[in-house]
Design a protein around this nucleic acid. Structure first.
Lengths: 112, 112
DNA sequence: GTTTTATGACGTATTTTTACGTCCTAAAGC
DNA sequence: GCTTTAGGACGTAAAAATACGTCATAAAAC
């Protein structure tokens, strides 16, 4: 029984957790940062920027693509990967919403 | 090989990724939300709130404790877990900083 | 037309995460 | 005293994430 229990939680928590997960690896953060800075690029370029093999970078790219944060369009042999502005916006919205739910009261009655 | 390559990335990306990872499971989000709402509680209470066994919840609590987001203080047999306001604040700061680095330009030159 | 280059697809090893069950301990109740 | 209750410690099994290497393919370069 070590099945995924993720779906037993509230819908919005699942969604937020999914986005957090997508950002839970420095390689993926580096990719997003790189794409945001350079606007458009190919995945080969990206693997040169990272201390990981091309195949591993590709896997991270695929993951970001699955969450919808990036898009890749075929251009002959090369693939242009770039950010999906709509999804990035949604991501920010959802993560922001969650973080607001853990707003802290002025004084927190917890002994140290 | 398959060793952790996380430490090969920029310090700030590592840190951000670590926080994102801490939030990458709905159970942990639910715990944080619950703690934020109820101010103080014991871990037994929490496992009643979640669709997971006590031991599993305990593991998630331990993970949140390792990242410093929550604190647990011994009170006889019972343990009061609560948010660590300082760390939560840091988390928001760091995640916000990262998200700002992926700010999007007005028009993004990517064909669909 | 052959070689190079870029990239996806596939397979696989290792590590980490997720999820429990069981046992142990120590206070609280009876 | 004995029993219940609460929770930590430990072990383990299954799944997912991480990291590569190798192969296949198709355009580009020569």
């Amino acid at each position: 029984m070590t099945s995924a229990k993720v779906e037993l939680f509230e819908e919005n928590l699942q969604q937020a957790a999914g986005y957090f997960k997508a950002l839970a690896h420095p390689a993926r953060l580096a990719i997003l940062k790189y794409l945001a800075e350079s606007k458009v690029c190919i995945s080969g370029d990206i693997s040169n920027e990272l201390p990981l093999s091309r195949t591993t970078v590709n896997q991270h790219l695929k993951e970001l693509k699955n969450t919808g944060l990036i898009k890749g369009s075929i251009d002959g042999v090369k693939v242009n990967y770039c950010l999906n502005p709509a999804k990035v916006k949604e991501l920010k919205q959802i993560l922001g919403d969650f973080l607001n739910t853990v707003e802290l009261p002025e004084k927190f009655n917890c002994r140290d």
